[in-house]
Amino acid sequence: MEDVNNHIESKRTVFVTVGTTSFDSLVRTVDSDQVKEALLEKGYTHLVIQMGRGSYIPKKSSGEDGSLVVDYFTFSSSIADYLRSASLVISHAGSGSIFETLRIAKPLIVVVNEDLMDNHQSELAEELAERKHLFCARPQTLCQVIESLNLDTIVPYEPGDANPVAKLINKHLGFPAD
C-alpha cells in the first residue's frame, strides 16, 4: 500500500479474503489470468489476497505493464482496514466476513467453498444474494460473475437489531421490560 499514495484517485482495490482457514481453489481462481483480466476490464487496479492457511501462493505483480497490481499475505489483525480501503470484496462464505463487509456497504462477491463437508455455508450466501445484498459464486463461476457484475443492482443491507431477543430473554427471566 506504500507505493500507491501518489495516484490514489485512480486506485481501485479488490480485496480477497479466505478467513481463518484455507481456500486454495478461490486463491488459485483469482490468481488466474482470466479473472485478473476480467477485473482489469471492470476498472480495478489492485488485487490484495488474504490467503490464510492455504498452500497455493499467488504471483506478486507490481503492475508495470498495465496489468493488475497483485499482493498477498496470510493473516492480518487489520482485516477491517483492508475491507475499508477496498472497492470490491471477494470473500469466503463465513458469516463473519460477510457481515463485516455488508456493514460497511462494500460490494461483495461471496465464493462458496464446495470442498467443505457440511456445506451449510451456501445457505446464507444464497439467501443474501436472493435479497440482492451481495453476489454469490463458486470458484468455477467467479469469472462469469465478475464479467457480468453490475453494482447498481445491489440493495444495501439493513443491519439487524439484537434488542428484541434481549427483551424476550429479560421477560422470561422476570426482569423489567425497559
Binding site: 451449510h120 445457505e123 446464507l124
Partner: peptide
Amino acid sequence: FYVESIARVK
C-alpha cells in the same frame, strides 16, 4: 437460551 446462527437459513 440458544440463538441459532444467522448462517442457518433453511
